[in-house]
Amino acid sequence: MSALDDTDRRLLRLLQEDAARPASEIGRELGLSQPAAWRRIRRLREIGALKGRRLDLDAAALGFGVTVFLGVKLARTGRANLEDFERAVSAIREVQTVEHVLGLYDYRLRVVARDLADFERVLRRRIMTLPGIGPVEANVLLSEERLPGPI
C-alpha cells in the first residue's frame, strides 16, 4: 500500500464523519481544489484504503429491538467445513456480521431480531441447523457506545 500523508489522513477522517460529503467541501476544508480532493479520494479507493460507502441504519428504529452476539464453535473444522458454514450463515438476513475469530469459539456473529421470541425462532430454525454447528453461546447487547475513529 502506498504511504499516506497528513492530508490523506485528514481526508479519511472527514469521510468517516460523512462519506457523502462533496469533494468540493472536502477540498475547501483541506485547502485543496475540488479536482485535487477528488483525485486523492480516487487514489485512496484504488490503493484499497477506502472500501466503499456504508449507511448506518438504526436497528431499533426499524423494529429490531434485540441484538445478540453469538459465539459459535464448529463441530468439525477444516477448510470445507469453514466455507460451508460461512456460506450458509451469510444467507441468514438477521445475521449482520460473521467474524472468524481465534479463541474459545470459531466464529462471532452479530444477530438482530425484533424481540427475544423472534431471536429464539432464528436461533432454533436457522442458526442451529447450519452445517457443522457445535456449541453456541449467546450474549444479549444491553447498550452500545460506538466511537468510530480513525485507524
Rank of each mutant, 00 (worst) to 15 (best):
R108A: 10
D58R: 00
G71C: 03
T67Q: 09
P131A: 03
I92G: 06
V98C: 14
L62A: 11
K73W: 07
R40M: 02
A88V: 10
E99I: 07
W38H: 13
F119M: 04
A61E: 14
E120M: 12
L82M: 15
L104N: 11
R43N: 07
R121S: 11
F85A: 01
L62E: 11
V101H: 05
E46P: 10
H100P: 03
E94H: 11
D84P: 04
R76F: 13
V122S: 03
R39N: 04
M128C: 10
D84R: 08
L109Q: 10
A88I: 05
A59C: 08
T97L: 02
A117G: 13
L116V: 08
L50W: 04
I92P: 00
V89P: 07
S90D: 10
L109C: 06
G78H: 11
T97P: 09
D56W: 13
W38Q: 15
L57S: 01
A49L: 03
G52N: 03
K51E: 14
T97V: 08
G78D: 10
V122N: 12
V66E: 07
L109A: 06
L57G: 11
E83W: 05
G52T: 08
R76Y: 10
G71D: 03
E99H: 15
A49N: 01
G63E: 05
V98F: 10
A37M: 00
K51N: 11
A80Y: 01
G132Q: 01
S90P: 03
A37E: 00
R93E: 14
L62D: 06
Q96K: 15
G71T: 00
E86N: 05
D84K: 12
T97R: 15
G48W: 00
G48P: 02
V72D: 00
R114T: 04
T97Q: 14
V101P: 12
R39E: 05
L102W: 12
D56C: 08
I41N: 03
T77Y: 07
A60Q: 10
R126W: 02
D115F: 00
R39I: 03
R40K: 11
G78M: 13
L102T: 12
D106P: 09
V89T: 10
F64K: 03
L50M: 02
H100F: 15
R124D: 13
I47M: 08
D106K: 04
L130I: 00
T67H: 07
R39K: 15
K73R: 15
R87W: 10
P131C: 02
G103Y: 06
F64Q: 01
